[in-house]
Write a protein that binds this DNA or RNA. Structure first.
Length: 829
RNA sequence: GCGGGAGUGGCGGAAUUGGCAGACGCGCCGGACUUAGGAUCCGGUGGGUUAAACCAUAAGGGUUCGAGUCCCUUCUCCCGCACCA
């Protein structure tokens, strides 16, 4: 930028200088210190795409402020960094550019590490982990075995989500609006035999324990609650004419007398049996075939027409004993509940629409208070509670009571029982890809499925494989990998060729950081010291996937008594996106701002300061080049201030508070109020933007003091206090700059080794205070009064003001409201 | 459709418990220094008015001495889930 004969701060030299010193002195290397309180500050580790983007910068700047701040507060801070390094892009690069995924990944890691280092982040790099390293994935495989041995990992054949473009299956959580979350290709259903983690066994605890983490945003907890989707109801057994039992799940057992038909999912196994002798069989088969061909997206879009067909079969309503027709319809999902539902058109909107479309009867069994529903004409279902009618012995009951009574009755008669259903499904962790941790399983013709013994881990990914554009995993053709011997009987056997979903790798990395080079997955003592993570920071896009999986894995390990905590992250901060001109930065939009360029032109401190100042962390942030200039200007403004005064204040001088002038007292008040505000903004509100603005105000106040005082009159002691505080307060935000200031002020040690400045309560005290005078709630005047003046004296002081007297002249004073040290409101008529 | 969040100057955003709306920064205007200024420093900056009054926190209503903040109605935008029985 503009080079200067002026006193412009040379960020290039300074940032390099301190980064080197930190590295040489191992400034951020930490070990367990039992006598100190620990603070585990974790930012979501990146996928090593090769290029840092602004979202990363924001994420890591926030983490760094917290890490450095808590260190200055006396905590023993763990602040690690690593790489979520398995995944598809590496493999795509291999196919496209003929680079091995391993090389591509490690090259990217090396370049991203340099970029991160140029930001001056206080990581303990000795703890770096990469999930693609055999010393890491060895324990990802170990984790798989833990789940396998506890019946939490199993293999089954099921219709699964298949992304044709990625040529692999996906977990439910990775399907967004019917499309692949990575590449946006429409997902297909395929019947495949796959490995699952039994996360549903933890559904209730994952739900209940949300209460144990008040430090998480409600929004995220709500998203998880909805995703788990627990709903309590009853399973009710209907009987078809041919004697076959059909189970339905309902949350409204109180409406069973209102059932006028029932509907099966097209995939329901009973469909074929029910229709086989019926005249309708042909048409139904045709319908089922058509529904199965519909994509997931078409099937489940709420706007889509509900379509159904009568099977020709009937069932008996177990309570009313009425004969009801059995239908098949596209809107019933085989995956949820029992794959069959009872149709209660009077009390369920979807059922009503379906009934009207196909002329099925409507029967009212719950009447609202104060009006009568008419089954013949109603066009909106009544889903609220009311009084039971047309329901035999339950007539007249409150429907809420009837719900329980009918559930009891069903149970007594053996017709059903209370059940709980979840929308959460087991986690599909198989991936038909190469660049992942191989699933440590061996198939033996004699012994069946045999887990790889722990001592044989890791099952290494073979390096010499061919990447072909077919998309098929090269592991499938890697004979030397596949062919092995059975660990149990020694006979020739085959290895599993699927790899583990990368979300498994990232659901335990926070444990590995505690003892990253241990020969075990982690050192239990170190985990006991560091866990749980005190502050976790990352994008809200991980609200369900990564955060739910990590909670699940932590609970599994907790149950095995391997870790002492059952929730991994005590506090969660979800930061907003970094936008440019209101849009997400993307190459196709051409609105990408590269961190490298900003660091080159303005320095890391400016980049960090701007990002922290521009918006509170939870909110989206619109990148502004002018805003960056502003941050840059501020740093230089502070630099000039310190240059101007430093020679005067290098020496410590003794001084006495009693001897200070009022300007000096005012300055000290600003200094200490700023310390208090910055501390509070960081610690309890994460409002880094207001913390920075407070520091700016302190800078302005220091300038005003200097400009308003003759240089001979400058109070060296107070100025020294002010400038030192400024350097200390800036340390978490602009770490290189703060170090340099600290040094210029004559200090020998690192600013980051200092204690956070103490607020001097005495300095905060004011003798006089400005009181707002309102008349009928409108501000009319301000008066200066001594602090702590009682209400009566305050009122007198206000009323004696000529301006006030003038304004209320001739009016009746109805009431006086006094808020001590703040405001007086005169109510007049 | 359901659930959640948000609407404040020209812009990003402050206002922590109901108590001076617009802190801080950007931009803009004026001044100083200067051969010069796209550097720096100082001052101004919601609308309105000569000055006031007054009007202003998406719109409308309410509670209150007092409302950006609490309550009700409506509108807009963003996010999540989306036939879950």
């Amino acid at each position: 930028m503009v080079s200067g004969l002026d006193t412009r701060y040379n960020f290039r030299l300074v940032e390099k200088k301190w980064q080197q010193r930190w590295e040489e002195s191992g400034a951020f290397h930490v070990t367990e210190e039992p006598e100190k309180q620990k603070y585990y500050c974790l930012v979501m580790f990146p996928y090593p795409s090769g290029k840092l983007h602004m979202g990363h910068v924001r994420n890591y700047a926030i983490g760094d402020v917290l890490a450095r701040f808590f260190k200055m507060q006396g905590f023993n801070v763990l602040h690690p960094m690593g790489w979520d390094a398995f995944g598809l892009p590496a493999e795509n690069a291999a196919i496209k550019n003929r680079i091995h995924p391993a090389k591509w990944t490690w090259d990217n890691i090396n370049s991203m590490r340099e970029q991160l280092k140029s930001l001056g982040l206080s990581y303990d790099w000795s703890r770096e982990v990469a999930t693609c390293h055999p010393d890491y994935y060895r324990f990802t495989q170990w984790l798989f075995l833990q789940l396998y041995h506890n019946d939490l990992a199993y293999k089954k054949k099921q219709a699964v989500n298949w992304c044709p473009s990625c040529a692999t299956v996906l977990a439910n959580e990775q399907v967004v609006a019917g499309c692949c979350e990575r590449c946006d290709t429409e997902v297909e259903k395929k019947d495949l035999e796959q490995w699952f983690f039994r996360i549903t066994a933890y559904a209730d605890r994952l739900l209940e324990d949300l209460e144990k983490i008040p430090g998480w945003p409600e929004k995220v907890k709500l998203m998880q609650t909805n995703w788990i989707g627990r709903s309590v109801g009853a399973e009710v057994r209907f009987t078809a004419e041919n004697g076959k039992e059909i189970k339905v799940f309902t949350t409204r057992p109180d409406t069973i007398f209102g059932v006028t038909y029932m509907v099966l999912a097209p995939e329901h196994p009973l469909v074929e049996e029910l229709i086989k002798d019926k005249a309708e069989a042909g048409k139904v088969r045709e319908f089922v075939a058509r529904a199965k061909k519909q994509s997931e997206l078409e099937r489940t879009s709420a706007e889509g027409e509900k379509e159904g067909i009568f099977t020709g079969a009937y069932a008996i309503n177990p309570l009313s004993k009425e004969k009801i027709p059995i239908w098949v319809a596209n809107y019933v999902l085989m995956e949820y509940g029992t794959g069959a539902v009872m149709g209660v058109p009077a009390h369920d909107q979807r059922d009503l629409e379906f009934a009207r479309k196909y002329n099925l009867p409507v029967k009212v069994v719950i009447q609202p208070l104060g009006r009568d529903l008419d089954a013949a004409t109603m066009d909106e279902a009544y889903a609220e509670p009311g009084i039971m009618v047309n329901s035999g012995e339950f007539d007249g009951m409150d429907s809420e009571v009837a719900r329980l009574k009918i559930t009891e009755y069903l149970k007594e008669k053996g017709l059903g029982e209370e059940t709980v259903n979840y929308r959460l499904k087991d986690w599909l962790i198989s991936r038909q890809r190469y660049w992942g941790a191989p699933i440590p399983i061996i198939y033996c013709d004699r012994c069946g499925i045999v887990p790889v013994p722990e001592k044989d881990l890791p099952v290494l990914l073979p390096e010499d494989v061919a990447f072909e554009p077919t998309g098929e995993s090269p592991l499938r053709k890697a004979d030397s990998f596949i062919n092995t011997s059975c660990p149990q009987c020694g006979a020739p056997a085959r290895r599993e060729t699927d790899t583990i979903d990368t979300f498994v790798c990232s659901s335990w990395y926070f444990l590995r950081y505690c003892s990253p080079r241990d020969e075990r997955p982690f050192d239990p003592e170190k985990v006991a010291y560091w866990m749980p993570v005190d502050q976790y920071i990352g994008g809200v896009e991980h609200a369900i996937l990564h955060l739910l999986y990590s909670r699940f894995i932590t609970k599994v390990l907790y149950d095995q008594k391997l870790v002492p905590v059952d929730e991994p992250f005590t506090n969660l901060l979800t930061q907003g996106m970094v936008l440019k001109d209101g849009f997400k930065m993307s190459k196709s939009k051409g609105n990408v701002v590269s961190p490298e360029e900003i660091i080159e032109n303005y320095g890391a401190d400016t980049a960090r300061l701007f990002i922290l100042f521009a918006a509170p962390p939870e909110r989206d942030l619109d990148w502004s080049d002018q805003g960056v200039e502003g941050a840059y200007r501020f740093i230089n403004r502070v630099w000039r201030l310190v240059q101007r005064v430093a020679p005067e204040v290098k020496e410590k001088v003794e001084w006495d508070v009693a001897s200070l002038s009022s300007a000096e007292k005012d300055l000290r008040r600003v200094i200490h109020r700023t310390i208090q505000r910055v501390e509070d903004d960081i610690k309890t509100r994460f409002n880094f933007n207001t913390a920075v603005s407070a520091i700016m105000e302190l800078t302005n106040a220091l300038y005003h003091y200097l400009d308003g005082t003759d240089q001979e009159q400058w109070h060296r002691g107070v100025l020294r206090e002010g400038l030192s505080s400024l350097a200390l307060l800036l340390a978490p935000f602009t770490p290189h700059f703060a170090e340099e200031l600290w040094e210029v002020l004559g200090n020998k040690d690192s600013v980051h080794e200092q204690q956070w400045p103490q607020v001097d309560r005495e300095a905060l005290k004011e003798e006089e205070i400005t009181i707002v005078v309102q008349i009928n709630g409108r501000v009319r005047d301000h008066i200066q009064v001594p602090v702590g003046l009682d209400n009566k004296k305050l009122e007198e002081a206000v009323l004696s003001q000529p301006k006030v007297a003038n304004l209320i002249q001739g009016k009746e004073l109805v009431k006086v409201i006094c808020v001590p040290n703040k405001l007086v409101n005169l109510v007049v008529k």
